[in-house]
């Protein structure tokens, strides 16, 4: 089956003054229709940038973004508009994502009218009612005439989602969509997203820095772990969480607070060689994680950029040469020894 969207060898640089900063390097990701894909990684690793490229809001510096098997730039006219609309994004900050000057009813009516999603005034009002019900904002009559500042963060996030749904998208990029709302609201928002995915046949790219959240949300989907602008591990959530391959993924799991027993079971003692995340202007050669990696193999990890491929013994893809080349786990020195006689 052709993926709904696919990133092929996507690079993205931002210019800071004269120097170009490589924010994304050689990203390859595919999202199937109705799939859940989770992007996790530390702050600044390029999750939002990836999400924006997938949503068609940002162009790749090089590489291709494909929608239904065709490059997005190859679409023309109405097809292009349709493709653009099929890709929607829900932002992180519920306080910045709704225009303070409009009521909720207006916010939802603009895209409905602009794209003739329904015909006539009565139909527009009916559709607004339906959408608000769909995102659990009931009774809709209490919401339509309110301004965004009169709603809570969770309610606003629901409005953002309803707004994305006005144009009947095929993919919703949810960029940290629940990280700024109350923990008590989070679960119900996530459940709602799940329900929308089932009912409306949309794919969801869920961006988060919280692995526990990713595990909860994407249990039936896939997780892609990003580090410094690259995908270092990707696979079914159960595999990535239950049997993490890349040292960075292991470190992330080790850093999760003890609250989640299932994650805790897979934990092993991890001590990184360095806590500092390298700057994007000075990305280390070879595997960009090697200066921090406790399993660093000199002469291997710092010379060649590891390709993202299947490693023996794992069902997910991982970008780690010692793993993929089958050098095996036993060759790696235990954490304590590494620290004792480290380089």
């Amino acid at each position: 089956m052709t993926p709904l969207v696919e990133l092929r060898h996507v690079n993205r640089t931002f210019k800071k003054g004269r120097t170009p900063i490589p924010v994304l390097q050689d990203i390859n990701l595919a999202v199937a229709p109705n799939e859940i894909l989770c992007l996790v990684g530390e702050s600044g690793c390029g999750k939002t940038t990836t999400g924006k490229i997938m949503a068609g809001l940002l162009d790749a510096s090089s590489g291709e973004m494909l929608y239904e098997g065709r490059s997005l730039v190859a679409y023309r006219g109405q097809a292009r508009a349709d493709a653009r609309r099929a890709l929607q994004i829900v932002h992180q900050d519920p306080f910045a994502s709704l225009n303070p000057a409009h009521t909720i009813g207006q916010i939802l009516s603009y895209p409905l009218k602009r794209h003739n999603m329904v015909q006539g005034r009565a139909a527009v009002r009916r559709r607004i009612w339906e959408l608000l019900t769909l995102v659990d904002l009931t009774p809709p009559g209490d919401i339509v005439n309110k301004f965004p500042h009169q709603l809570s963060g969770g309610q606003r996030q629901r409005v953002s989602i309803a707004r994305a749904l006005t144009v009947e998208p095929r993919l919703i990029v949810a960029d940290e969509a629940v990280s700024m709302v109350d923990v008590s609201i989070r679960i119900s928002l996530l459940k709602m997203l799940h329900r929308l995915r089932d009912e409306l046949n949309v794919a969801i790219v869920f961006i988060t820095h919280d692995l526990a959240l990713a595990k909860y949300f994407a249990w039936e989907g896939r997780i892609a772990v990003m580090y410094l602008g690259r995908v270092v591990e990707i696979g079914a959530t159960a595999n990535v969480i239950g049997h993490p391959a890349h040292p960075y993924t292991r470190a992330l799991i080790a850093a999760i607070p003890e609250a989640d027993p299932e994650l805790t079971r897979n934990k092993q003692r991890m001590k990184l060689r360095s806590e500092d995340i390298p700057s994007l202007t000075q990305i280390p050669p070879g595997c960009s994680f090697h200066p921090r990696c406790p399993f660093f193999v000199p002469g291997v990890c710092d010379t060649r950029v590891p390709p993202l491929e299947n490693a023996p013994g794992f069902s997910q893809d991982v970008a780690c040469i010692p793993l993929t080349s089958g050098m095996g786990l036993q060759e790696w020195a235990p954490v304590e020894d590494m620290v004792a006689d480290g380089p």
Partner: peptide, 26 residues
């Protein structure tokens, strides 16, 4: 650069709408 302007771009609401309805009122 506001999120709601980005959302309007993603929703393909058109430049006149974005200027007159999203940017100017604020």
């Amino acid at each position: 650069e506001r999120d709601y302007v980005q959302a309007a771009v993603a929703l393909d609401l058109g430049l006149p709408h974005i200027i007159s309805r999203e940017v100017l009122p604020n």
